[in-house]
């Protein structure tokens, strides 16, 4: 019972952090707002420059939050699926497919609106390719090692195509291409659809969560404890891929959130996926919201891609975790 109360407290704390991160995102920018300006605007919406700034920042903060949540959820699911702590949402090459599609859209000069749709089609194509190839021809049995190898090889293939496109792109397009590749939230300002996907995916994942506690300890072991692993693994692959596709479509390939957030939560001693998954979503969302605020205010008026900030935070944190886990053995 004590443990259960602690869990509720932990989730409550993360909810507060999440709201705080969004609030901070509203305050900070090329023009710093005061706290009371924001409260006033919420109480009495008005037509002013402040109101416009708040609306723009709110949309961007929500886009960052949902993308971070999607990435963290996809990472946590992917780590169970391939039973590898180094797995992240991009390991199966889904972001590669999205990137190729997005770069082609930029190269052909398609309007910004269609970039999202194009990237999503690219992500789905990459997803289908992994599904089909990892299963093999006439091979009904499916295993995580094969999936991982197939995904890693396909990701390398997408990487080559990306370099190819970059090589043949005119200079004036290279800038926006690089921004997209490094992960950038300045394109998309309609977070509603990704929030819906995040919400549905989290609910669906919570129904699998208890079985994930067993699956993470080994496929056969999970079977002896009554888990239908083949079935579960397919659902996991589908969920993780969809989350990745939605996140990449919204903001390009933002690194490290999907890799480190589940580990951060585990470090607090939480291993039960019924808590770990929602906690990862909240933590990933807050982290990316804060990172995005940094990325647009650090060198203001110049905005740097948020992927640079997450990498700069992510690399030391991850190395620290690695050292720590080795010291424990």
């Amino acid at each position: 019972m004590v443990k259960k109360n602690l869990h509720s407290l932990f989730i409550a704390l993360l909810l507060i952090i999440s709201l705080a991160s969004i609030f901070i995102a509203l305050l900070i920018g090329s023009r710093t707002l005061a706290v009371d300006e924001i409260f006033k605007n919420f109480l009495q919406p008005q037509q002013s420059t402040q109101a416009l700034i708040i609306q723009l920042r709110m949309e961007r903060a929500l886009a960052a939050f949902s993308t971070g949540g999607l990435l963290a959820l996809a990472g946590a699911l992917m780590q169970v699926l391939v039973r590898n702590p180094l797995a992240d949402p991009y390991i199966l090459g889904i972001s590669g497919g999205a990137s190729v599609a997005a770069l082609l859209a930029i190269l052909l000069g398609l309007p910004l609106i269609s970039l999202t749709a194009t990237a999503f089609v690219g992500a789905l194509t990459a997803m289908l390719l992994v599904f089909i190839l990892s299963r093999g021809l006439g091979n009904r049995h499916w295993n995580p090692t094969r999936l991982l190898l197939t995904g890693v090889v396909l990701a390398a293939g997408w990487g080559a195509v990306i370099s190819f496109i970059l090589t043949f792109s005119p200079n004036n397009k290279l800038h926006s291409m690089l921004f997209w590749l490094m992960g950038d939230l300045s394109y998309n300002h309609s977070p509603a659809s990704s929030f819906i996907i995040l919400f549905v995916a989290l609910i669906a994942a919570l129904f699998l969560a208890r079985s994930l506690n067993v699956l993470i300890r080994g496929e056969q072991f999970a079977q002896t404890l009554g888990v239908s692993t083949q079935n579960l693994q397919w659902k996991l692959l589908l969920l993780a891929s969809l989350c990745t596709a939605a996140a990449v479509t919204q903001a390009g390939s933002i690194g490290f959130i999907g890799l480190i957030v589940p580990h951060l939560i585990r470090l607090t001693g939480i291993h039960d996926h019924r808590i770990l998954l929602p906690a990862s979503v909240l933590c990933g969302g807050s982290l990316l919201t804060l990172a995005d605020t940094l990325s647009r205010s650090m060198f203001s008026p110049i905005q740097i891609p948020v992927g640079i900030v997450t990498a700069l935070i992510g690399i030391p944190v991850f190395l620290f975790l690695l050292q720590r886990s080795e010291a424990h053995r």
Binding site: R217, T224, V227, S228
Partner: peptide, 21 residues
């Protein structure tokens, strides 16, 4: 599977502990 796991249990030859617990 769940009903089976209530009637029959098995100790596997080895364990694959990758994540801490």
């Amino acid at each position: 599977r769940q009903q089976l796991a209530q009637q029959l249990g098995m100790l596997l030859q080895d364990f694959q502990d990758v994540f801490p617990a």
